[in-house]
Design a protein around this nucleic acid. Structure first.
Length: 291
DNA sequence: AGGCAGGCTTTTA
DNA sequence: TAAAAGCCTGCC
């Protein structure tokens, strides 16, 4: 099917934003998007008439699956253009530029268990290493399926599948010391899932008490600290005010906001702006144009 | 009590 | 050798 999106939507920017680790770039400019046990092939179609900024994409799923799942996954009911417009160039030139340059990013509504395990695995490592470990874990415990082109992929393993893996197999996924955390989360997740899902958000709202309660719930998992908990809040529970502070964001805050970051100005979308900043700063440092 | 140093796996530069 | 989307434990 073909869909048209008038709001910000850039597959490449989303794929490289560091919120998802299992997307695969295709040779036609599209992506194979893996989430939980699903797979979607999506590719942007060439722009039509002049002056039309809307983006059309071809998807390999039936219409009902788009409406029941992928529409929500890509967060298509949110208006990211409007979120970007809240940042004034004269008040916050750094964030303004980050939003302009990383326009197209959206905050995906990702699978809860996959996101929890993925960000446990992410701690203290680079993105390629994270992707490799997750790929190995899916091969070790996921289910092999075929996509619409007949090419196989592995689902993200169920909690039970990970919980039953021997230590040696987990270690072979290059998890390092994190293997214990990965196993513990798999064992504990089923009993905690319902409590956790109560913190899942339909739309952005300022609710500091609920944000804190969600963090507390998440940090109850062995191996989950404040940073990983914020990532899960943002990328799976869709709590858009969650603000993960990692080594990169720490550098940004120290370098660009020596007098403190005005997070109250950006509520309830702090997490969205964090993502623009994070992507922009990484982009700059990757291309050696830092400072 | 709450803050801090040190340790932890593995890979890459 | 240091750093990489950190966290746990033990010490003070």
């Amino acid at each position: 099917m073909v869909i048209t999106i008038s709001d910000d939507f850039d597959l490449k920017k989303i794929a490289e934003s560091g919120q998802c680790f299992r997307w695969e770039a295709l040779s036609d400019g599209g992506y194979r998007v893996l989430s939980g046990n699903r797979c979607l092939r999506i590719r942007p179609l060439p722009a039509g008439g002049t002056g039309n900024t809307a983006q059309t994409c071809e998807l390999d799923c039936p219409e009902d699956e788009f409406h029941s799942f992928w529409q929500n996954y890509f967060d298509l009911s949110e208006n990211y253009r409007q979120i970007r417009a809240r940042v004034r160039r004269e008040e916050d030139p750094f964030l303004y530029t980050a939003c302009e340059r990383e326009k197209g990013i959206r905050i995906l509504r990702q699978d809860l268990f996959e996101t929890l395990e993925s960000f446990i695995i992410s701690q203290n490592r680079s993105i390629p290493m994270i992707q490799n470990s997750i790929r190995l874990l899916c091969r070790a415990a996921g289910e092999e399926k075929k996509d619409s082109a007949g090419i196989s992929y592995f689902t993200f393993p169920s909690p039970e599948a990970i919980a039953s893996l021997p230590e040696s197999v987990l270690r072979d996924c290059r998890l390092g010391y994190r293997w214990k955390y990965v196993r513990a989360a798999a064992i504990d997740f089923p009993a905690r899932e319902d409590r956790l899902r109560r913190f899942c958000c339909d739309q952005a709202s300022e609710d500091n008490a609920a944000d804190a309660a969600a963090l507390e719930e998440l940090t109850g998992f062995f191996g989950v600290g404040v940073k990983v908990a914020n990532c899960v809040s943002l990328f799976a529970l869709h709590r858009l005010n969650a603000f993960p502070v990692d080594t990169w964001v720490r550098k940004i805050l120290a370098g660009q906001y020596p007098k403190g970051y005005p997070s109250e100005n950006y509520s309830p979308y702090n997490g969205v702006y964090q993502q623009y900043m994070f992507a922009w700063y990484r982009q700059k440092s990757a291309s050696g144009k830092l400072r």
